[in-house]
Design a protein around this nucleic acid. Structure first.
Ligand SMILES: [Zn+2]
Ligand SMILES: [Zn+2]
Ligand SMILES: [Zn+2]
Ligand SMILES: [Zn+2]
Lengths: 138, 138
DNA sequence: CTTGAACCTCTAGTCACTAGAGATTGTAGA
DNA sequence: TCTACAATCTCTAGTGACTAGAGGTTCAAG
């Protein structure tokens, strides 16, 4: 049995974040000492590691909730889990796509001015004022 | 002179968002009718288009504030504008990098299970529980 | 037994909006 | 000119995933 601070150290999840996860129902309410402090065991550690990993992979709290519920019922079909993962992957790909378009434009914009001139003639400012200067939609 | 709804239509920025920008100091306070409704002219339209475009490119409200201030002073050095653009580009590149790592892992995870089994044997859930299954840091 | 780090709860702030309530105004058709 | 109703107004609160701070209590080492 260890404290929230110890759990924090082991999982690299900040203490207030752990309490937040508990409040959101991701973590079961921890046991308490007689003085009302939280105490965790291996189960709590594994659960939080799962959450941490899923968050690192960009899953939302809501998605993680569903995944955990599934994990709690080993006999259920895992279809929902795959669905969530596939949808998360699609999300990530969509974001990459969008960001690549931005990168293209921002790269052009950045290169267009060395910062030595005055605001009036600045290509950065001109580019922001006029989307027509962009090479594509973004 | 046109209404906020008309401005919204022309710039594709939602009405409450326009009011929000005004509150944040990005848009000058608009003129008002005797009945207190906002009225805009070409200047307001151009300003909002600038904001919209910068937002589309991912600049923060704070960054846009600085850019607008620079734009208001045509004689000032534009160095800050270039700095902001370069830093935004770096941000975007960083995000792309991160997302590509996620994509790699998520793609592996998604492929690992067809959703036909049970939760207990699910590769998606196993992968989330164990970062060791990941091929890299992410 | 004392000290002080770690813990507790609760509220509020972050960012860039978005939604809704409840009241007022603008404008087009009768 | 009147009426209907869409559009506008202000204000407050909610979103997601935390983070910061106040003010108080508990744990554990020396
Ligand atoms: Zn410049
Ligand atoms: Zn553009
Ligand atoms: Zn599965
Ligand atoms: Zn991993």
């Amino acid at each position: 049995m260890f404290s929230i601070g110890e759990l924090s150290k082991r999982t690299k999840v900040k203490v207030p974040t752990i309490r937040y996860y508990e409040q959101m129902g991701l973590l079961a309410e921890a046991e308490r000492t007689s003085g009302n402090q939280r105490r965790y065991d291996k189960t709590g550690l594994e659960r939080l590691s799962f959450i941490r990993h899923a968050r690192d992979l960009g899953f939302s709290i809501e998605a993680i909730s569903s995944l955990i519920e599934l994990q709690e019922h080993p006999d259920r079909s895992c279809e929902a889990a795959t669905d969530i993962a596939v949808s998360q992957l699609a999300d990530v790909r969509e974001k990459i796509k969008r960001l690549k378009l931005l990168e293209k434009e921002l790269s052009r914009i950045s290169k267009g001015c060395d910062g030595q001139g005055v605001s009036e003639d600045c290509y950065v400012l001109a580019s922001l004022a006029d989307h027509e200067l962009c090479s594509r939609e973004h």
